[in-house]
């Protein structure tokens, strides 16, 4: 039994691509309602970790608990509690906003009125109810990302994973999305937010710094940066560390 029944618990996780070690004995716990930024440069192992957390890859070593469910032993129960926003867009651009959301709802076993109600509520929250019948191709990058976040929450997950969700967005959209996800964490959602952009992290956020497959730091942003900027602290942790 874990104390983080609604959070994330990663124990002794390792993964290699052939001879190349992508993750090396990773331990990480994210408490319920916590916003944890997974900070790492390119090639740090963030996307590998996300592929393991979403069970796209199966870890030969280590254990992952999502909302108290063991991903290896009860994958379906664990995935049912998980919402994911991938780094690359996963919306079908030629289908309408509503169709995209209904498709995802169906993948999580929601159909009929239950699905209609959740999709309508999600669109209302996004302020996009009037654009429901437009193809996703007509939306700008910021709206598409917000829509992907809303989609990831349709089945009411306990844990939300976001893999560099602000890539390619303008400054205003980045701020809006970062604020939005912080609000979701404040409402009780466990959030793991992978990024290499330090300006997306608040002082009160938990920060796990990943570099070359290993955890280099695990503390709050304020403690990590001390008297300097988070960017400087991050660079000093990841530059030259082999």
């Amino acid at each position: 039994m874990t104390k983080h029944v609604n959070g994330i618990e990663i124990t002794g996780l390792s993964y290699s691509y052939g001879a190349k070690r992508a993750l090396d004995d990773l331990h990480l716990q994210v408490a319920p309602g916590q916003f944890c930024a997974l900070l790492g440069p390119n090639g740090a192992g963030k996307s590998t970790l996300f592929a393991l957390l979403t069970r796209l890859f199966v870890a030969p070593q280590g254990r992952i608990l999502l909302a108290g469910q063991d991903l290896a032993r009860s994958p379906r129960a664990a995935l049912a509690r998980l919402g994911v926003v991938f780094q690359q867009p996963t919306l079908d651009l030629d289908l309408t906003v509503r169709r995209n959301l209904m498709y995802f709802a169906a993948l999580h076993g929601l159909a009929g009125r239950a699905a209609e109600a959740r999709v309508a509520a999600a669109l209302d929250r996004l302020g996009m109810a009037e654009r429901a019948r437009e193809p996703v191709r007509a939306l700008n990058g910021g709206h598409r990302r917000r829509m992907e976040i809303a989609r990831a929450l349709l089945h009411d997950p306990a844990v939300l994973l976001l893999d560099e969700p602000t890539v390619g967005l303008d400054a205003a959209a980045r701020v809006a999305i970062t604020d939005h996800v912080h609000d979701l964490a404040a409402q009780g959602l466990t959030v793991l937010w992978a990024t290499h952009l330090t300006d997306e992290i608040r002082d009160t956020d938990r920060v796990a710094v990943l570099h070359r497959g290993r955890l280099r730091a695990d503390t709050t942003a304020a403690a990590l940066r001390g008297g300097e900027s988070l960017q400087s602290a991050f660079l000093s942790l990841t530059e030259g560390a082999a």
Binding site: L56, A80, T90, G109
Partner: peptide, 14 residues
């Protein structure tokens, strides 16, 4: 289909 396959494979089904 890579993006949509990633999404599909996170559905709680075998």
């Amino acid at each position: 289909e890579m993006g949509s396959m990633r999404l599909l494979l996170t559905a709680p089904l075998p």
